[in-house]
């Protein structure tokens, strides 16, 4: 029967070797470039950090790939997964944010950008972008916001989120260090949970670095360098004009800065 050889092979991973048999070559448009990103929102700041390794299989493509982008209007976007899709997504979002500014003569808010990003992802519901984005910005009250997404646009505002290769390594660490999970008031005999406090930007930066140095030890796809991008409420520089044009101010009034540092390269 002609259709019999079209049925799945009974033995997996056995490829037909003779020319007489039809050879099916499955091409996947997707690939995975490793790496890891981590976003944490504070009372008056946001941090998104990412390692700078980009790999494919066991090969390291480059040690200097950035995963966190300034997408304009005081917002940042971290992407991890397939870098080609991620970069396309970043271009698209950045373009739309610029369009928004041009059409409305004001900066988009992080909440509006969050919905927009969701729509962009959902538009490709049946050929999704193979990447997990983290959107960061200050909301209109100046409070840090991280929005995390799945591939097809489900999203949620969160306090902290790790995505990518070492997400499973970093997440429990974050639970413990940011949300104080499994921490108890000393002397309470494990009865009274340690109350949550707002961590300072400096404290969180240390946690981020520790998270990555630990992930590097245990995950081969993470390493090389650390890109740490922060948004803090803008402080007017000395001598700066008093009457600032509304257009120049971002919705959350955030100022973006970036610090690069080393991670182990082995």
């Amino acid at each position: 029967m002609a259709s019999s050889y079209l049925l799945p092979h009974s033995q997996p991973n056995v490829h037909p070797t003779t020319a007489s048999q039809p050879r099916q070559h499955h091409w996947s448009p997707y690939t995975e470039n490793g790496g890891c990103i981590l976003g944490i929102a504070g009372k008056d700041y946001v941090i998104i950090a990412g390692d700078t390794r980009s790999s494919e299989g066991y090969s390291i493509n480059t040690r200097t790939a950035r995963k966190v982008y300034d997408i304009g209007s005081g917002l940042i976007l971290g992407v991890v997964g397939m870098s080609a899709d991620g970069e396309e997504l970043v271009r698209k979002v950045a373009r739309k944010i610029d369009d928004y500014k041009r059409n409305h003569d004001k900066h988009i808010t992080v909440a509006a950008a969050a919905v927009m990003l969701s729509r962009i992802l959902y538009q490709k519901r049946f050929f999704p972008y193979y990447c997990q984005p983290l959107l960061g910005g200050l909301d209109e009250e100046g409070v840090g916001a991280i929005y995390s997404y799945d591939y097809v646009g489900s999203f949620e505002r969160e306090q902290s989120r790790a995505y990518g290769a070492a997400a499973s390594l970093i997440t429990p660490f974050l639970d413990n260090q940011i949300n104080f999970k499994n921490q108890f008031v000393p002397g309470s005999n494990g009865e009274e949970p340690r109350p949550k406090v707002d961590l300072s930007k400096e404290q969180v930066e240390k946690i981020v670095k520790d998270a990555f140095t630990s992930a590097v030890e245990r995950h081969i796809e993470v390493g090389d360098g650390l890109q740490l991008v922060t948004i803090v409420k803008g402080v007017r520089a000395e001598g700066e004009e008093e009457d600032e044009d509304e257009r120049e101010k971002t919705a959350g009034g955030g100022v973006i800065s970036e610090v690069m540092s080393d991670l182990k390269k082995d």
């Binding site: 448009p29 690939t31 980009s54 493509n61 480059t62 790939a65 870098s83 080609a84 396309e88």
Partner: peptide, 12 residues
């Protein structure tokens, strides 16, 4: 710079 059939790009 590098680019391949899936559009993956990188520099080194």
């Amino acid at each position: 710079s590098y680019v391949d059939l899936k559009g993956t790009t990188y520099s080194a």
